[in-house]
Amino acid sequence: MPFDYPEDLQYLDSHEYARVDEEEKIVTIGITSFAVDQMGDVVFLELPETGDSVEKGENFGTIESVKAVEDLKSPVSGSVLERNDALLESPEDIANDPYGEAWLIKVRAEDLSDLDDAMSAAEYEEQVEGS
Protein backbone atom coordinates (compact mmCIF):
# COMPACT_ATOMS: atom_id res chain seq x y z
CA MET A 1 0.00 0.00 0.00
CA PRO A 2 1.59 3.31 -0.99
CA PHE A 3 2.14 5.79 1.79
CA ASP A 4 3.46 9.25 1.46
CA TYR A 5 6.43 10.52 3.53
CA PRO A 6 7.16 14.16 2.68
CA GLU A 7 10.87 14.90 2.18
CA ASP A 8 10.79 18.10 4.23
CA LEU A 9 9.76 16.36 7.47
CA GLN A 10 11.76 14.51 10.10
CA TYR A 11 10.55 11.25 11.61
CA LEU A 12 10.70 9.27 14.83
CA ASP A 13 10.64 5.49 14.97
CA SER A 14 7.53 5.88 17.11
CA HIS A 15 5.78 7.29 14.00
CA GLU A 16 5.55 10.99 14.85
CA TYR A 17 6.80 13.53 12.33
CA ALA A 18 8.28 17.00 12.91
CA ARG A 19 7.93 19.94 10.52
CA VAL A 20 10.56 22.50 11.46
CA ASP A 21 10.43 26.25 11.08
CA GLU A 22 14.10 26.96 11.79
CA GLU A 23 13.81 30.74 12.02
CA GLU A 24 11.00 30.72 14.56
CA LYS A 25 12.14 27.45 16.20
CA ILE A 26 8.58 26.20 15.84
CA VAL A 27 8.07 22.46 15.39
CA THR A 28 4.73 21.14 14.11
CA ILE A 29 4.14 17.58 15.31
CA GLY A 30 1.84 15.00 13.79
CA ILE A 31 1.76 11.28 13.05
CA THR A 32 2.60 9.60 9.76
CA SER A 33 0.19 8.20 7.20
CA PHE A 34 1.60 4.75 7.94
CA ALA A 35 0.71 5.13 11.61
CA VAL A 36 -2.76 6.44 10.82
CA ASP A 37 -3.39 3.46 8.59
CA GLN A 38 -2.17 1.01 11.22
CA MET A 39 -4.35 2.56 13.91
CA GLY A 40 -7.54 2.15 11.92
CA ASP A 41 -10.62 4.14 12.87
CA VAL A 42 -9.39 6.87 15.20
CA VAL A 43 -12.02 7.79 17.78
CA PHE A 44 -10.25 9.82 20.45
CA LEU A 45 -7.37 12.21 20.80
CA GLU A 46 -5.88 13.76 23.92
CA LEU A 47 -3.49 16.71 23.50
CA PRO A 48 -1.77 19.12 25.92
CA GLU A 49 -3.00 22.65 26.52
CA THR A 50 -1.37 25.69 25.04
CA GLY A 51 1.45 26.74 27.36
CA ASP A 52 2.11 23.22 28.66
CA SER A 53 5.65 22.00 28.33
CA VAL A 54 6.64 18.86 26.47
CA GLU A 55 9.84 16.83 26.79
CA LYS A 56 11.78 15.11 24.07
CA GLY A 57 10.98 11.38 24.08
CA GLU A 58 8.17 11.82 26.60
CA ASN A 59 4.44 11.35 26.12
CA PHE A 60 2.50 14.47 25.25
CA GLY A 61 -0.84 12.90 24.47
CA THR A 62 -2.83 9.89 23.41
CA ILE A 63 -4.38 8.65 20.22
CA GLU A 64 -7.04 5.99 20.41
CA SER A 65 -8.70 3.91 17.75
CA VAL A 66 -11.36 1.27 18.08
CA LYS A 67 -8.70 -1.38 18.47
CA ALA A 68 -5.84 0.30 20.31
CA VAL A 69 -4.63 3.19 22.38
CA GLU A 70 -1.16 4.66 21.82
CA ASP A 71 0.99 7.30 23.47
CA LEU A 72 2.23 10.23 21.42
CA LYS A 73 5.91 11.06 21.89
CA SER A 74 7.44 14.46 21.40
CA PRO A 75 10.50 14.79 19.15
CA VAL A 76 11.60 17.97 20.96
CA SER A 77 11.47 19.71 24.33
CA GLY A 78 9.65 23.01 24.47
CA SER A 79 6.33 24.66 25.18
CA VAL A 80 3.06 24.15 23.36
CA LEU A 81 2.18 27.18 21.22
CA GLU A 82 -0.97 25.80 19.72
CA ARG A 83 -2.97 22.60 19.56
CA ASN A 84 -5.32 21.44 16.84
CA ASP A 85 -8.70 21.97 18.51
CA ALA A 86 -10.60 21.24 15.31
CA LEU A 87 -9.02 17.80 15.20
CA LEU A 88 -9.90 17.18 18.85
CA GLU A 89 -13.53 17.71 17.86
CA SER A 90 -13.41 15.20 15.01
CA PRO A 91 -10.36 12.95 15.50
CA GLU A 92 -11.46 10.63 12.69
CA ASP A 93 -10.39 13.38 10.26
CA ILE A 94 -6.76 12.52 10.98
CA ALA A 95 -7.01 9.95 8.21
CA ASN A 96 -7.72 12.58 5.57
CA ASP A 97 -4.67 14.80 5.80
CA PRO A 98 -2.12 13.74 8.46
CA TYR A 99 0.64 16.02 7.13
CA GLY A 100 -1.58 19.06 6.59
CA GLU A 101 -4.84 19.92 8.34
CA ALA A 102 -4.47 17.05 10.81
CA TRP A 103 -1.32 18.20 12.61
CA LEU A 104 -1.47 17.70 16.38
CA ILE A 105 0.50 20.41 18.22
CA LYS A 106 2.94 23.23 17.48
CA VAL A 107 5.83 23.51 19.90
CA ARG A 108 8.35 26.32 20.49
CA ALA A 109 11.50 24.20 20.69
CA GLU A 110 14.19 24.94 23.24
CA ASP A 111 16.89 23.42 21.10
CA LEU A 112 16.44 22.20 17.54
CA SER A 113 19.38 19.85 17.96
CA ASP A 114 16.85 17.60 19.70
CA LEU A 115 16.05 16.53 16.15
CA ASP A 116 19.59 15.50 15.26
CA ASP A 117 18.78 11.85 15.78
CA ALA A 118 15.45 11.96 13.91
CA MET A 119 15.12 10.08 10.63
CA SER A 120 14.83 11.41 7.11
CA ALA A 121 11.83 10.46 4.95
CA ALA A 122 13.90 7.82 3.16
CA GLU A 123 15.18 6.33 6.42
CA TYR A 124 11.70 6.22 7.91
CA GLU A 125 10.21 4.69 4.79
CA GLU A 126 12.85 1.99 4.80
CA GLN A 127 12.13 1.24 8.43
CA VAL A 128 8.37 0.87 8.09
CA GLU A 129 8.10 -0.66 4.67
CA GLY A 130 11.34 -2.62 4.46
CA SER A 131 13.90 -2.23 1.70
Partner: peptide
Protein backbone atom coordinates in the same frame (compact mmCIF):
# COMPACT_ATOMS: atom_id res chain seq x y z
CA UNK B 1 3.41 5.57 19.45
CA UNK B 2 5.89 2.92 20.43
CA UNK B 3 3.88 -0.24 20.16
CA UNK B 4 1.82 0.46 17.12
CA UNK B 5 0.95 -3.09 16.27
CA UNK B 6 -0.04 -4.06 19.74
CA UNK B 7 -3.73 -4.74 19.41
CA UNK B 8 -5.28 -3.91 22.72
CA UNK B 9 -8.43 -5.82 22.13
CA UNK B 10 -6.53 -8.91 21.13
CA UNK B 11 -4.35 -9.02 24.18
Amino acid sequence: MQTLLHIDCLN
